[in-house]
Design a protein around this nucleic acid. Sequence first.
RNA 1: GACCUGGUAGCUCAGUUGGUAGAGCACCUCCCUUUUAAGGAGGUGGUCCUGGGUUCGAGCCCCAGCCAGGUCACCA
Length: 565
Amino acid sequence: MQLSALEIVRRESLQKLRELGINPYPAKQFKTTATIKQIKSDFKSFEGKEVVLAGRMMSRRIMGKASFAELKDATGRMQIYLNRDEISSDENATMYNTVFKKLLDIGDIIGIKGEVFKTKVGEESVHVKELTVLSKSLRPLPVVKTDADGKVHDAFSDPEQRYRQRYVDLIVNDHVKETFIKRTKITNSIREFFNSRGYLEVETPILQPIPGGAAARPFITHHNALNIPLYLRIANELYLKRLIVGGFDAVYEFSKDFRNEGMDRTHNPEFTVMELYVAYKDYHWMMSMTEELLEKVAIDSNGTTEVKIGDNNVSFKAPYPRVPILEAIKTHTGYDVAGMSEEELREVCKKVGIEVDNTMGVGKLIDELFGEKCEHHYIQPTFITDYPKEMSPLTKEHRSNPALTERFELMVNGKELANAYSELNDPIDQRERFEDQLKLSEKGDDEAMFIDQDFLRALEYGMPPTSGIGIGIDRLVMFMTNNSSIQEVLFFPQMKPEKKTIELSEDEKTVFNLLKNNTPILLNNLKSQSGLSNKKWDKTIKGLTKNKLAKVTNTEDGLFVALID
RNA sequence: GACCUGGUAGCUCAGUUGGUAGAGCACCUCCCUUUUAAGGAGGUGGUCCUGGGUUCGAGCCCCAGCCAGGUCACCA
């Protein structure tokens, strides 16, 4: 392994710690008596008292016999003050002069025991009396500094490194940690809301023999013992509905779903959807439930219903407007498309500048009109309702218009946040809708739904009228934390693998094999045996010496190349 | 998938017309007892993303590729 100079120094420090009888990775529990957040939030009662803290050393200011350092624990950062004669017992002041000043580095994890006090300039600090090494860090951490104006210098900001090495991102970028804490607050808030109503959190299969409940390309895998293909779920909808058939009144699941499609700022191959199904309800009820839920989530995560998303101020205060999709199209395009034929709709699309082709049916055309001309207008939470039937194969037909369905999508900041239906529970209608999907599939739509015969069998036993909703959790967290990229709300977003460490080139292998047969050997002999040009030879031998496989030595008899064992 | 931008020290970045690879922080040596982007003096540190090509000479120009970000397409 190729080590940088900084890494070599740290490994040497590690060795020296051991030589001093200090275990750089002690096994024993280190009992702390407080957290930094506790001290900072209640400084007066801690002042003058002894505390034991543990954390990572984030910076160091050494001034002769006194030093300041910054300690970061899971809850915050705090300055610590160290004095040579107070932390050292021997006359060489080894603990201070050697351990603290020479052998410790930024990034090391230490424990301290000391007294809480305030410095001359008013900085809340801990006066260290005892220092314990808890874990030596062998890699240099990016040093991010924040000045008195709050301006950040040398921020660790390269997105590739931040995502690939999220652990470093979390250590040096405090705001990143906040995002993920908020993510958990949001899911906890949703759970609280549902649990308090007696809804049951459940788990359903991730490995499914038929990937149903949505239209998307699945990831496929193989079960060896059964010798069958299995799919990673693209949705859990059909399983939750089976549970409603089975007699549960309300079930929900935070479902990690997987879709084998493109990746961009708002799409990751694996993502989280919260799905909820409640028996004997309809989509009107679901809208009321949703606005109540989101108002709570906003308050629980941000302390207020008013949330800044990009340049917009969005209010999650219930209630939210409910706008039928055809009305939205009328408002934003001027065309009343209600009852229009496919041909008429196609004309309207052309007039407003939407490209159309002959494969697009009524549903698709309406969807395009809304997506292109209306969607981005809905910044404040708005329920768009009553989508055309052919786009919604799992949704109950609208009670007063057979061309539409009882479906809504919740739009926030011009994007879809949730999708909900009065669920289709007529097994014969459901079978026909699936068969229509199959026809689409035969026409070449590789994302049309598969027919799940067992799901139809379940419906045939009878499912109560039910309303269901899916809320995109990643997107919800993006809104609540004002992030515009899904990668910022996933700990470990999907990335292409890093390039492997470089193997030996063909030329290097050739020379290495020559050397194995005859070592040491005169450099010029080896060079002529290799048959390489000057340029190639130079590159090859430098590659070998750099990888510590060969060594060139200068003797009275000339330059010799030898293998290194 | 297309296009745009980028990849140089541990981190953040400069790098002129193609002519000996730089700065700040970090690190090492020294000075300094309440500092705080601590300070002062000196120093170490490089696969300039990879592979070809052009050239006397490439971080820079050309070709191919890799990785990332962005925009668009796709994602009912």
